[in-house]
């Protein structure tokens, strides 16, 4: 196996400016990329990805993507929202002490129509809304964070051919930092997947 003698690619072995980001293979149909993804996964690559214009059903499983823990985190956020909702109302409408929340604030026991101070049933709408609010904001926020997303530049976005990843083409990208990445060998491997085009993506 020539892989044994291969230089480590993620080290800046050639000239630092020309170290590529990775290799990109283009496919035309969901079935082709599904097949390719299974084979790349089977070949043992780790730093690779499929870029598709819409979520191809089952492709994440074929790539060996593990199920995200996002729902658990969102559950935590929702529970926090419910707690915040309860405490906010209990403090502002039923408490008579002061706490420090950036400034000193004092509760105000609201006595309305002789109703009990802790009128929990009347607080349910606000508790519910805050549960939903916190869950929804954290769903969106955590999804983006876990995807490393608010991101203004990326080597792939500088590639002209890659523009069709949001239109009608399906791409497999294997990154150069993958331990199994070896430019010539990986390129041959990607061609063998039935790609209509394989090219190097420059780092930028």
């Amino acid at each position: 196996m020539s892989a044994l003698t291969a230089p480590k690619v993620d080290a800046p072995s050639t000239t630092a400016t020309t170290a590529p980001f990775g290799l990109m293979a283009e496919f035309r149909t969901p079935a082709e990329i599904m097949d390719a993804a299974k084979r790349v996964h089977a070949a043992g690559y780790r730093y690779w990805d499929c870029h598709v214009p819409f979520p191809v059903h089952g492709l994440d499983k074929a790539m060996g993507v593990r199920r995200t823990i996002l729902p658990l985190l969102v559950f935590g956020a929702g529970a926090t929202g419910a707690m915040v909702g309860f405490c906010l109302q209990a403090f502002t409408n039923a408490a008579s002490f002061s706490i420090w929340a950036l400034v000193w604030v004092t509760g105000y026991p609201f006595l309305i129509s002789g109703k009990p101070l802790m009128s929990v049933p009347a607080w349910i709408p606000v508790i519910f809304e805050l549960t939903i609010l916190l869950s929804a904001l954290s769903t969106a926020g955590l999804m983006l964070l876990m995807n490393n997303l608010p991101r203004l530049s990326h080597p792939l976005l500088a590639n002209n051919r890659f523009r069709r990843a949001s239109d009608d083409r399906f791409f497999v990208v294997i990154e150069a930092r993958d331990p199994k990445f070896l430019r010539s060998k990986t390129e041959a491997f990607m061609k063998s997947l039935g790609a209509s085009h394989v090219e190097v993506v420059e780092d930028c």
């Binding site: 870029h51 199920r67 995200t68 991101r151 890659f162």
Partner: peptide
């Protein structure tokens, strides 16, 4: 915001959408 159609992103995206 730098969306690249990555399937790893789509995976979390679909879960988030369902949530």
């Amino acid at each position: 915001i730098g969306w690249r159609g990555s399937m790893r992103h789509w995976h979390r995206y679909e879960v988030a959408y369902l949530l």
